[in-house]
Each structure stands twice: as C-alpha cells, then as structure tokens.
Amino acid sequence: MTVQTLTTAGLPPAPRRTPLSTLAIWGVLLALLAGSWTGADMRPLDLLRDAGNMAAYANGFFPPDFHDWRYYLAEMVVTLQIALWGTALAVVCSVPLALLAAGNITPWWVHQPVRRVLDACRSINEMVFALLFVVAVGLGPFAGVLALWVHTTGVLAKLFSEAVETIDPQPVEGIRATGAHPLEEIVYGVIPQVTPLWISYALYRFESNVRSASVVGMVGAGGIGMVLWDVIRSFEYSQTAAVLLMLVVSVSCIDLCSAWLRKRLV
C-alpha cells in the first residue's frame, strides 16, 4: 500500500461541481450579455470609423492651459472642504445609527427599520441628493456638503454596524458581569473593539468623498466640479485638461495620505 492511498483512504470524496452546471452558468452569463447588446447601443465599429475625429478632439486638450491655476486651486480646496465636512458629519451620525442597526445590540424591531432608512440613504446617488439640496438651500458648496452627508451616512453606518456585528461577545459579557449599564457595555466593551475598523472605513469614505465632491459640483454644488462643468460647456478643452490633471493629482495625494494615516492608526 502506498502512502498516497493511506492518507486518502478515509477521506470522503471531494464534492465535484458537474461540468453541466458550470456550462449552464456560462450560458446564462453570455445570454445576458447578448440580450443587453442593443439596449446598451453597442457600436464598437464606430470607434474605428471615427478614430480621426477623436484624435482631433483629443488634440484640443493639449497643451493644458494652466493660466487660471490659482482659481482652480482655490476651488480644489473648496472641494476638499466639502468632502471633509460631509464625511465628518456622516461619521458623527453613523456611530449611533450603526449601533442601532447592529443585530447583536438591538432587537429586530429596532435594527430592521433603521437598516431600511440607511438603505434609502445609500441607494440614492450623491448627485441626485445634490440636485435636491441645490433646490432646497441654493447653489453652492453647502448643498454639496448636505448631499455627501446623507449618502455617506447610509454607507458608513452600514459598514460600521457590520463591524459591530463581528465583535467578540466575551469582553462585553465581562463588562456586563460587573453590573454596568448597557451604555457602558457599549462604550467599554464594543467601541474599543471596532475602533480600528471604523477609522479605516471613515478614511476610505473620505477618499471617495473627495472624488464625489468633484462630481456634485457639476450640478451647482460648488467646488472644482462647477469649474469643470463651465470649461467643458464652453469648449475650453485645454483648460479642461488642466482642471482634470489637478483633480487627478489631488485625489492621488489624498489617497496616499489616507493610506499612510490608516496604516499608522489601525
């Protein structure tokens, strides 16, 4: 008897997915793609046919025109400020909402309704919220802050509550066994366990909010997005290139900084 048979003798046979089911999955996927072809108006050949036009169009972007760079920079800073306030307000609101939405903290008749509210906040895009808030509070960065606040609260509270649901219940029980108040159980037993994850999620959302803040500007909510919208509409492609470059550089910087910060804090 060989070693091979010795080690595998008692082992139950590994469950094997039939080739048929794998084929079926691929079939469904391909059918879906084919069915969506006309709906998505797929015209790949146009890319080749109009290549000349596109080259001419792309040529308009060069060289980038940094003539108004001071103005762009000021608006870029406004964009960062929108993201900062939107994220900060969202973090503050997410902490209580996350605890209420956590299945291991509250009974179902509390966490289910709270989760549905968070779903609603999350399912509507920042851009749509920005459109609504521009009507409510007028054009400008404040509308952007409100839009980011609502949407980010929906996202962060969900992520935070998932972190709460994965905690180790034993330390919480240790605190409970001293006769502590339920709020003390949360402050001493739950929060310390989730802090690293919460910080990490909040920083990540700040990064995404810098990106989102540049987009919500397009509907009139201030910042670099508004500038971008103006230069695109007035066909100033070399200025558009300059704005886009600044956007790319600042978003990369923020990403690098927050990655570094996350590593230090977590």
Partner: peptide, 9 residues
C-alpha cells in the same frame, strides 16, 4: 471567566 473577558485594546 475562562477566557478572561478583558477588553484587549
């Protein structure tokens, strides 16, 4: 408790 149940952090 057997697992001490202290809050690690």
């Amino acid at each position: 408790f057997q697992q001490f149940n202290l809050v690690d952090r």
